[in-house]
Amino acid sequence: MRDPRRVGVLISGRGSNLRALVEQAKGYEIALVASNKPQAPGLDWAREQGLSTWTWDSKGVEKEEFDRTLSAALDDHRIGTVALAGFMRILSPWFIDQWRGRILNIHPSLLPKYRGLDTHARAIEAGDRVSGCSVHVVTEVLDAGEVLGQAEVAIESGDTPATLENRVLAAEHELYPRILREFVRR
C-alpha cells in the first residue's frame, strides 16, 4: 500500500529543491531520490545524506519503458507521493495514470502563465511586474494541473533571466516543502 507521507523526489540536476524538501521535511519522509541522469549532482548530495537513490540514464530509452522501471522502484520503496524537483523529462501517460493525483511539480512561473521553458525571460520580455513559482498536480497536459500554491516575486528594474531565476528559486525553496507537507495530509 502506498503511504502518501513516503515521498519519492525525481531530479535531473543539482537538486536544490531536493535539499529544501529534505531539510524542511515535517510530516513527510523523502524515502527515495530518483534521477534520469546518473551524474546528477543532486544524487551525490542525497547519498551523502544517507538517502536511498535510484538512477537510470534515460538517453535512448523508450519513455514508457523508463517510466515502468521507475514506477517499480517507487513501489519497491513504498512511495505514495512523487515530487518532481527539476526533473527534466516529460512523464508518459502510463506513468501519470499509475500515479494520478499523487505527482507534484514546482514550476518557475505563476501558472497558468508561462508553461514550459524560459519562464523568466518570457516574464521579463512581457513587461510583467511580478513573477514567481507554482506547485501543481501533474497531469498529461504540461504544467496544467491543479495549482496548490504560489509565491510571488517582484520583477525588478534591470532584472535578467538569471537574477530573476535566483530570487524565484529562493521562493521555491520556501513554497514547495510547505505545499508538500499540506498535500500528504489530504
Results as ranks from 00 to 15, higher is better:
1 M>I: 13
2 R>G: 08
3 D>M: 01
3 D>G: 00
3 D>R: 13
5 R>Q: 15
6 R>L: 12
6 R>V: 06
8 G>E: 09
8 G>A: 14
8 G>F: 05
12 S>A: 09
14 R>M: 12
15 G>T: 10
17 N>A: 08
19 R>A: 13
22 V>C: 00
25 A>T: 13
27 G>S: 11
27 G>F: 07
33 V>M: 00
33 V>P: 03
35 S>L: 02
35 S>R: 09
36 N>G: 07
36 N>L: 02
37 K>L: 02
40 A>D: 11
40 A>V: 10
43 L>K: 07
44 D>P: 11
44 D>N: 12
44 D>V: 14
45 W>E: 07
45 W>R: 05
46 A>M: 02
47 R>H: 01
48 E>R: 15
48 E>C: 11
49 Q>Y: 10
50 G>C: 11
52 S>N: 15
52 S>D: 14
55 T>D: 08
55 T>Y: 06
57 D>C: 07
58 S>K: 15
58 S>T: 10
59 K>P: 09
60 G>L: 01
60 G>W: 00
64 E>W: 07
68 R>K: 12
68 R>P: 02
70 L>R: 10
71 S>N: 09
72 A>I: 05
72 A>T: 15
73 A>C: 05
75 D>M: 10
77 H>E: 05
77 H>I: 14
79 I>E: 05
85 A>L: 04
86 G>W: 06
87 F>W: 03
87 F>Q: 13
87 F>T: 14
92 S>D: 11
93 P>D: 08
94 W>Y: 08
95 F>H: 11
97 D>K: 15
97 D>M: 12
98 Q>Y: 02
101 G>H: 03
102 R>Y: 02
102 R>N: 09
102 R>T: 05
105 N>C: 13
106 I>Y: 06
106 I>C: 08
109 S>W: 15
111 L>Q: 10
112 P>D: 08
112 P>L: 06
113 K>F: 10
117 L>I: 14
119 T>F: 15
121 A>L: 12
121 A>P: 09
129 R>W: 15
132 G>P: 01
134 S>L: 03
136 H>V: 05
138 V>K: 13
140 E>W: 14
143 D>L: 04
144 A>L: 14
146 E>N: 04
148 L>Q: 02
150 Q>C: 04
152 E>S: 10
153 V>L: 11
154 A>W: 00
154 A>R: 15
155 I>E: 05
157 S>F: 13
159 D>V: 11
161 P>D: 01
161 P>C: 09
164 L>S: 02
167 R>C: 10
170 A>Y: 00
171 A>R: 09
173 H>P: 04
173 H>M: 05
175 L>I: 00
176 Y>W: 01
176 Y>D: 12
177 P>H: 05
177 P>V: 10
179 I>F: 06
181 R>S: 15
182 E>W: 02
182 E>K: 04
182 E>C: 11
183 F>P: 04
185 R>V: 14
186 R>D: 12
